[in-house]
Design a protein around this nucleic acid. Structure first.
Lengths: 208, 208, 208, 208
DNA sequence: CATGAATGAGAGTTCATTCAT
DNA sequence: AATGAATGAACTCTCATTCAT
């Protein structure tokens, strides 16, 4: 089947999809526009036809993903703080599991103090945090959660999930090097989700 | 006072110190050897006189810092799991607070699945995790800690601390943009340490 | 006439032609990619667009020329050892005379024991020697040539021609410095060819 | 035994000896002053203490060797053209065999039209050629040699010897690759000398 | 829309050479 | 005489970006 020609929507999407993949795998700097073009099977100049430049493309990639995860979590909201908390954790975890590129990108972005963090992406992050904040605040009002510091709880959840996903290969190697070391390298995403949810409940002193 | 000349130790140290600073601020790729030379007020060729190449320099920078933190924690060990846990958390936190470059570097390193992680640095990381693992294992044996999954606990501690430090400027901005949002931007390092320690205790079901 | 733009074939050729010139004049190391770009009136990056790197370019240059000479000799083959020998000598000599860059490159390449000799070029050299070998073997079988040591005959022919061509300017100067010295600096290529052919016949004890 | 210190003569000699070795092995450009210093086990700055710069050192190396060979040939002169010719060939060949660095250097030097050929070295070369010229001229006068073109005879002798020596490793490989190919890779230096002498006699129509 | 060719500004690294001790 | 440290200019190669078709 001959390669389809002159299909704007398709080309644009191929670029963004493959850009996400590569940015996540290799980071912003180590991903070249040549790489993206090759991976997307698209002419390099097309990237500049559809996106102003590399950093704009990057910003769109990120925004795209962060918004998707936000929508997914919101869609399942139930107006019950505990259930919403569980939903937040499990949806976030499973999304990251399905898109292992995301955690790497987020960590990378957060790790340079937002020096290059695009406005739009920053807004998406705040939106996600705002969501958890709201859930926690409601739970506190209803006396279900105690002593809540939302930012820290947020990082305990998303930071831990992100790190577990990005470090998966490293943890495997570490276990092979030292059998004594329990790096949770065989933990399934379900187990991780469950464990975190349980621990967060303990932290927030939820009565069973 | 005239600039001192021909002082090997000083030159070497200026290179490593300033390299650490820039790597942390801008990441590995975005830090050029020219930047390092300029920042260290040293001839660029000197970097190659003392260090094989850029990535070797990077590895030395990282190893240097990770080992320092490990030593500091070990020095204060007390053979009491609970105290050792507290010591681990507070020493790690205060070290990162004093060296705000470290968390950024660690997150960055972990965020690319160790693609460029130098052997030596990986060993340093395992060493640090091994330390916490040991503390947790002892606490479990003595029935002080319950239901321990060391890797996750490790990430909950260091991941959270790292993120809180690297995101400090971002959280400040976020708070300014939306006063409703509690981003813990005024939390002191002591408060952070205390909160985490308390929450980890709850998670591990330590009896007060 | 305005400078023509965007002509791939032309650009590629300008690079290879000028590279050959400079490599021959100054050797591999002393020829910089900047030199080549400037000489070829081409952007330096184009060299890397068309050729993987400097040494690949070098290999292509050499292979290119060696193959050309081989083809030229083969084209005139006559299945008569003596005529083929004469053809070998005269074609080689006139080719070198037309491409004075070649002998310098060959001598240079042979002078470092093939340390950097690219595979492809080595193959081209063997091919050329194989051709002479075959001619000599046939002549020996037919009892036209006596006491043949092909490698030495080969070097007596091509070595002498190469040296005469590369040293032309030096021999001129030497003659000017010392009129007594007969450096053959006025010898034409025809004379050289003829003299060598005659001497090689004597060496091989060809009956007139 | 501790390394001897402050011995000017020794240091100077170590530099020149090892420089010759490396220049021959890797050529002028590919030999760094660092390499020379390391190989000679001498501080790099010493090279500049004793020799103005790299190219001066190179010139001295070459001159040194060329003069040695000239002296050796002259010492054995017999005032008999045929014997002197044999002596020229065999002394040159055995000298090159003992100093395999020399042919590489000579070929390299001759291959760039003397672009970088130092005056002194050029004089040494002329001296050597002058010697053979004289022998041939005498032989011609005495009607022992016929139809002499000294420059060509010179190149047939030294060119062939030089090439045979520098290409020794290549010829071995070529033979391994293609057993049919007779590259004279097992020819001893004596055989080479004898063969060349015999062929040159034939060329000059010497009566047995 | 799409493409291959072209560009210019650097990046990392090397190296001959010199300086201070 | 000898040394380690320092320098500056170059060199190879890369890459985001643009142009001509």
């Amino acid at each position: 089947m001959a390669k389809q020609k002159r299909n704007a929507a398709l080309t644009k999407e191929k670029i963004i999809t493959n850009a996400m993949l590569l940015f996540a795998q290799n980071g912003y700097d180590a991903t070249t526009t040549d790489d993206i073009a090759k991976q997307a099977d698209v002419n390099k100049a097309m990237i500049y036809y559809y996106y102003k430049n590399k950093s704009t493309l990057y910003a769109e990639v990120m925004s795209h993903v962060l918004d998707a995860i936000y929508q997914e979590i919101v869609a399942k909201e139930a107006q019950n703080p505990l259930k919403d908390l569980e939903n937040f954790i499990s949806t976030y975890a499973s999304f990251c599991h399905k898109n292992p590129a995301l955690p790497a990108l987020l960590l990378r972005e957060l790790s340079d103090s937002g020096a290059h963090l695009p406005q739009e992406m920053f807004a998406n992050m705040r939106q996600l945090f705002g969501l958890l904040s709201k859930i926690l605040a409601e739970g506190e009002e209803q006396n279900i959660f105690k002593n809540v510091e939302p930012m820290m709880i947020h990082f305990m959840i998303v930071g831990t999930i992100n790190l577990l996903i990005t470090t998966a290969p490293l943890r495997k190697i570490a276990s092979e090097l030292d059998a004594e070391l329990n790096t949770c390298h065989e933990c399934s995403i379900e187990k991780i989700t469950e464990y975190i949810y349980e621990k967060i409940q303990l932290m927030l002193e939820v009565q069973q």
